[in-house]
Design a protein around this nucleic acid. Structure first.
Lengths: 259, 259
DNA sequence: TGGTATATTAGGTCTGACCGTTAGACCAGA
DNA sequence: TCTGGTCTAACGGTCAGACCTAATATACCA
């Protein structure tokens, strides 16, 4: 007797079950192959892939297909494509940029509230500060100090203030020496920047408080005091978020509100 | 006299200054146009874009160009392309999936340490639990309970245990009702799952502790007790991370270590 | 030596054709 | 009435070949 003979239903039919099958497209096959080689480290950063016409010869695929595969990798941030002689597809490791782009798409596409962005920052950034206090280098400190200087020098120029503000937050994230966290923070910072740049709530007082808070967190990081860093950063981002929330209530113009 | 007449240099040439200009590719132009329309909500989810050949007529571009534009949007998760009759490009909002894919690429591409993943989870998840305790619905609770049931029923089947584990963590994230945070957690959970599924450190004791911890966090969420939720979750993910770190030291096989 | 033409090599775009898959309608046999 | 076969139209997927455009290497000339 066969060990696993398919049983039969009332129709007398075999009850073999199949799952929906996927038939990959040629361009996907090539893209996957190349992606695997890039991620495995077989091609190091900056290595040029063969020219399109050469890939056509090697793969026996049409140029259309080859180009689609390259376009996929380009959008995923795995290659950078240059035109002209000595051009071609150059291997690139995905960086904060592709991450930030995806986050930006998610935020716009899902109409994520500004409040949710601020909440997320409240979750991540204190921890970043803690790690920064543990792992900071002198170079990290220099960047923090530079940002503090810029933000003090910004005066009442909103652009300069916001830019220096973002720079400082990114410097903290970088000092954590956790690339994933810093990538997230960079994405978040950009998104919050974009969402607040046209807001009128940043007045003299907000700027003053921000400068002070940044300095005190910077000091904790300089002194390698993780507890103080996490506490002060937590307080800072929380109060910043609160003042934005208050401002939104006050002005009664809730933007990006969920339906 | 003309108000802004360009001065002339010794060459007799006009001294008009131009900044470096970018010449976008045709496919990018179309992709940007369509992306803008999708994100602005002009096309709602599920609406089909015109067929490729129709876009060719409308845009006066070649089919090659149109297809490249659609491919870009597909990779960015903004459309889903189906072949066959009544096929075409259907509008899609970017979701956790595209986020998770990008995170996965970043992790592999940058060779991010498992330790960094665990750190990141330690940063995010306690905050998720806190929000979950505040905003949970009964539906959220049902999912948590279901995951708890599955994890208890998993016995010593590693697959089932890990899957139920991930389900529970995702359920917590969803209960926070912050789509950005939950998207991040889903990406993270998948990555940690992928990095630990072949590890032998999950023994009887680890499973037991995990089940208990999940239950206690679930209770805090059920009781709408944010403080307890954040405290217990923090303790749970921290001790989990610690035991992985210990295991890695013990087995002395540091994987994905930075150079 | 230094600028300038020219050739070469790459990607970017276009055309037109054909293939493969799918939904739907219709028909024929059990 | 169910089941399967067949046909057609409407899609995306793939292909081959051509030409355009940009960037650069290189030879050339003042």
């Amino acid at each position: 007797m066969s060990p696993a003979a398919p049983s039969t239903t009332r129709n007398g039919r075999s009850s073999i079950q199949l799952t929906p099958m996927e038939v990959p497209k040629a361009s996907d096959v090539l893209a996957n192959e190349l992606r695997e080689r890039i991620l495995s480290g077989e091609y190091t950063e900056g290595t040029p892939l063969p020219p399109e016409r050469e890939l056509v010869v090697q793969t026996k695929m049409s140029r259309t297909t080859v180009r689609e595969a390259l376009r996929i990798l380009e959008v995923q941030g795995l290659v950078r494509i240059k035109a002209g002689r000595a051009g071609g597809a150059f291997v690139q490791r995905p960086g904060e940029k592709s991450m930030a782009d995806t986050v930006a798409l998610l935020i716009r596409g899902r109409q994520i509230r500004l409040g949710a962005l601020l909440e997320t920052r409240e979750a991540i950034e204190p921890f970043c500060a803690q790690l920064a206090a543990r792992h900071r280098t002198d170079e990290d400190l220099a960047r923090l100090d530079a940002a503090n200087k810029d933000i003090a020098a910004a005066g009442d120029k909103l652009d300069a203030f916001l830019q220096a503000n973002v720079d400082w937050h990114i410097a903290v994230a970088s000092a954590s020496h956790n690339e994933l966290l810093s990538g997230l923070m960079i994405s978040l910072s950009r998104a919050i920047y974009a969402a607040t740049e046209n807001e009128g709530f940043i007045d003299e007082k907000v700027r003053e408080i921000t400068v002070k808070a940044h300095r005190s967190v910077t000091k904790a990081i300089r002194d390698r005091d993780p507890d103080a860093a996490v506490r002060r950063m937590s307080r800072h981002v929380h109060s910043y978020a609160e003042s934005i929330r208050e401002f939104e209530e006050r002005t009664d113009i809730p933007l990006d509100q969920e339906p």
